[in-house]
């Protein structure tokens, strides 16, 4: 047990400072990580935007604004044979998990312009 009240307060403050410092560091690295993933996703998205455009409403649909899980599940359906468009099967199979996640994070971050 800590001794005096002064020491207790000091210890609390120390812990608080530690928590703030580590939280800040964690938040900073998390933000940097998310930003890096989004940046990677934006780069990878170049492969999608040759065909998919925002505002499209025809055979090749717009893909901006999808929730992360929805995008990942959709790509899964091309990888597991549930959907069979040859071009999309080829795209989905050429991407690894990390790349699909980066793409999902990027597309989720883009607000659709609509038609």
């Amino acid at each position: 047990m800590p001794g005096s009240g002064f020491i207790r307060v000091m210890l609390m403050l120390k812990n608080l400072a530690f928590v703030i410092a580590t939280s800040m560091a964690a938040l900073t690295s998390l933000a940097a990580f998310a930003n890096e993933e989004r940046e990677y996703g934006e780069y990878l998205a170049g492969e999608c935007t040759s065909c998919h455009r925002d505002g499209a409403n025809e055979t090749i649909p717009p893909i901006v604004g999808y929730e992360v899980w929805a995008f990942v599940s959709l790509m899964d359906t091309y990888r597991n044979g549930e959907r069979d468009n040859q071009a999309m099967v080829s795209v989905a199979k050429s991407l690894d998990e990390e790349q699909i996640k980066a793409l999902a994070i990027y597309f989720a971050s883009v607000e659709p312009k609509g038609n």
């Binding site: 040759s50 065909c51 055979t59 090749i60």
Partner: peptide
């Protein structure tokens, strides 16, 4: 591991869809 090509004997519906894809691609590109 990703090469693809349309197949002979495909349905008219699939061929129409492929053509329509090309229209969308043209606009996007």
């Amino acid at each position: 591991n990703s090469k693809f090509i349309s197949k002979t004997g495909e349905t008219a519906e699939l061929r129409k869809q492929t053509f329509e894809e090309s229209l969308d691609w043209y606009t996007a590109m």
